[in-house]
Design a protein around this nucleic acid. Structure first.
Length: 202
DNA sequence: CCCTTGATGGTCT
DNA sequence: GACCATCAAGGGC
């Protein structure tokens, strides 16, 4: 059976809903035949042109941010601090630059491959905790920018994993103090008690 | 345990 | 030339 999320899933214009709904979904990559996957346990929503923390704030359009304005269902990957690749899911309709940052995953498929990529055991929380680590564990780098999530390099599946509402916590996003008042918006979502959720405030 | 700090590069002004 | 949606090692307690 086909568990892959369809294009229509990503066209939802409510990026806050999607950030929450993606918890429990499974993010896959296939690289040279190696398949790895992680259960998404932490996300952040970036609310397009009105969000000071968004790269598209104020409607800025550059070569880089053009990806965000695309129709939902593609990836947005960029380099942060010169070292880390951060993976986002572009959502909503064409022209609406909403995105969801995947901040942490729980290793699900191909743990041995992730261990090699990260040089640490899969049961160690740090292997895929935090956006840079999660992307590295899944082998995501800048070559994964602008990939169609309904194809076979990087995609998301629904394995029926569901969390009780009381276990899904909303709080301020991490590392966006520069966004001033928008830094306080509760647009970070995570699974309470999951050890792979990143540190700062779990 | 906690805190500090170095690593490292694309993007935008 | 500044600014980052960060990580992990290392030193001090």
């Amino acid at each position: 059976m086909n568990l892959k999320l369809p294009l229509s899933y990503y066209l939802n214009q409510d990026v806050i809903f999607l950030a929450k709904d993606l918890l429990g979904k499974v993010l896959f990559t296939e690289i040279n035949g190696d398949i790895t996957a992680g259960i998404i346990v932490e996300t952040e929503a970036y609310f397009g042109v009105v969000d000071k923390a968004s790269h598209a704030y104020g409607g800025r359009r550059t070569e880089r941010t053009e990806t965000l304005y695309s129709q939902g269902g593609i990836s947005y990957v960029y380099l942060c601090y010169g070292i880390h690749h951060l993976f986002n899911v572009v959502t909503s309709v064409d022209g609406e630059p909403h995105a969801v940052l995947v901040r942490a995953v729980e290793p699900f498929v191909g743990q041995e491959i992730m261990e090699l990529r990260r040089n640490m055991p899969a049961d160690k929380a740090a292997i895929s905790s935090g956006p840079g680590s999660a992307a590295k564990a899944l082998g995501i780098d800048r070559s994964f920018n602008k990939k169609n999530l309904t194809e076979n390099e990087i995609w998301v599946e629904d394995h029926g994993i569901r969390y009780a509402p009381e276990v899904i916590i909303a709080g301020p996003r991490i590392g966006v103090a520069y966004a001033q008042e928008d830094a306080l918006l509760p647009w970070r979502f995570y699974v309470k008690g999951n050890k792979y959720v990143s540190k700062p405030r779990s």
